[in-house]
Amino acid sequence: MGFGPHLLLATLEGLVTAAVLALTALGLSLVFGVMRIVNVAHGEFFMLGAVIAWGVASMVTGNPALGFVAALVVSPLVVGAVAFLSERLVLRRLDYNPESTIVATIGLLYLIQQAALTFYGPEARPVEAPFNLRIQFPWFGYSGYKLFVIIAAIVLLTIVWVVLTRTRIGLIMRATQIDREMARAFAIPVERVYAGVFALGAMLAAIAAVLIVPIQQAHYLMGLDPLLLSFIVVIIGGLGSLRGTLVAALIIGVSDGIIAMFFSPTLAKMIATAAVALVLVFRPQGLFGTASR
C-alpha cells in the first residue's frame, strides 16, 4: 500500500477517534467548567451508555436500525437519570467540595463498574450497526458506519454548540460558569443548573458510547480509556473551554491515528501524555482556557 492510501486510512481512523473523543470530553469539560468538579466516573457513564445500548438493541427485534435508534434515545436518558440521581444523592451533599467530589466519583466509578459486572456480566457484547455498508476504496475497504459516526458526531457537537451559545438554557449555564454567586443573585437556581449539567455531561458520554458500540463491543471495563483520553483532551484544550476541547480532541484523535499507523501506538500514547505535561508546564490553563481569577 502506497503512502497516500496509507495516510488516508490513518486520517479516517483518527477522525473516528476524534469524533467520539470530542463528545465524551465535551461532557467532562462541561461538568468541570460549570460545576468546578472533576468527575472521575465519567468513563463509567460512557460504559453504562454502551451496556444499556446493548440491552435496548437486544430487546428490539426486526431491523437493526430500529434497535440502534431506540438505543440512541433510551440509553442517554437512562444514563442522564443515573447521573442526576448521583448528583442529588452524593455530590450535592458534599457541597461540591473539589477534593470530596473526586473521592466520591472514584467511589461512583467502582459502584457502576461492579454493578455492570454483576448484572451485565464479563463478556464483550456487540450491537449490530444500523446499516451494513462497506465502502471499497481502490486500496482497501472501509466501514461505512465509521464515516456515519464522524458525521453524527459533527451534527451532535453543532447542536450542543448552538444550545450553549444561542439559547436561554445555554445562557444560564454560561452565567453559572462565569460567576456562581452573581448568578444566584440574579435568581438562577444554581443547584438545579448543576444537576442538569451533570446529567447532560453524562448523556454526552452515553451518546458517544452508543455511537461507538457497533464498532467496539460493550464491556464493563471499557470506561477507562475514554476517561484517560478525555482528561488529556480537556487539559490540553483548557478545562471548561468548549472550543479548546474540540480542537484538542481533533489533534489527539488524528495524531493518534497517524502516529499509531506510521510508527507505533505506544509512541502515540507517549506523545499525547508528553503534550499534557508540556501544556501543564507552559500553559497551565490549556490552549484555549482562561487563566483562573
Partner: peptide, 25 residues
C-alpha cells in the same frame, strides 16, 4: 481497542493470516 490501523502492515502476498488475540476487543 481498534485494529484497522495495523492492517496496512500485512504484506499483500500473504496467503495465511495467523491471528491470536485475547481480551474484550
Amino acid at each position: 481497542s481498534s485494529f484497522t490501523k495495523y492492517f496496512p502492515q500485512i504484506p499483500a502476498e500473504t496467503e495465511v493470516l495467523y491471528h491470536v488475540m485475547v481480551g474484550p476487543a
